[in-house]
Design a protein around this nucleic acid. Structure first.
Lengths: 135, 135
DNA sequence: CTGGATCCACACCGATACTG
DNA sequence: CAGTATCGGTGTGGATCCAG
């Protein structure tokens, strides 16, 4: 995801592939590859929480545990995808602010659906694993 | 995901962690780790399509590109999570059939939300990447 | 037919050090 | 402050062979 999975240089001449989930060009599959990254969805949701512009260093403060490298890398991916906007203030110590684009904000909706499922059902999943583990 | 990320042996004494997305125990994060796997969500959706029992070999036929190893491994994870049920027919050449549990079927809902977003917006993402790539 | 076990390639991600 | 470059550990997933 970070290293760019393009193989043709164009990758996705999309359309509707609901029945062809195993096509590498399937948009759902590619989206999952993307948000499956360790920090992507967390960053999107952090930016959504703020609902405004955030500086690089504050982002790093909020995303406890992320390294500068991964923060910069994930942010650049998100920007390339058009999900995040980057504003550079050309001051002497540069100040850069990030914010979610409308496209990025729209992604929060399905992400929230996932979060709801997780919070509702993950305990059940855990219980099932715990029960099965002892058998 | 496959190798089990437990560190305490209990892992998740959950509750509500909506604001603590960076806690490793956050259910959303753990769910994403899981469905972020290459085949997990595809298998769930394939099983949902069939809406019944499917044999191992037919699953492999439907999930073109998957290896037997990953099919078995993903299926076992899904079973341990309580998302998939496994029925073994004790015949001489064993016949095993898999199906989605109600819990597994419930996961299809947020997965579909993701699929809808992907099919609606991934072309935009691609266009944005293509435009930015030349810069 | 349905797996398990092993070996291996590669991508992800972290730690560290350097730049403007 | 806001990155980039490099190195290396680790986990994921594929190929192949073996077993019930």
């Amino acid at each position: 995801m970070v290293t760019n999975g393009d193989r043709t240089g164009k990758t996705a001449p999309p359309g509707n592939r609901r029945g062809d989930l195993f096509d590498p060009a399937c948009p759902t599959r590619r989206l999952l590859d993307r948000i499956g990254g360790k920090w992507t969805s967390m960053l999107v949701k952090t930016l959504a929480d703020v609902d405004g512009e955030v500086r690089f260093s504050e982002l790093q403060r909020r995303a406890r545990g992320i390294s500068r490298k991964m923060l910069a890398q994930t942010l650049r991916d998100l920007e390339a995808d058009g999900l995040v906007a980057r504003h550079v203030e050309p001051t002497v110590p540069p100040a850069v602010r990030y914010s979610l684009t409308p496209l990025g904000r729209s992604l929060v909706v399905p992400l929230d659906a996932l979060r709801d499922w997780a919070e509702t059902h993950m305990p059940t999943v855990d219980a099932h694993r715990a029960a099965g583990a002892g058998s």
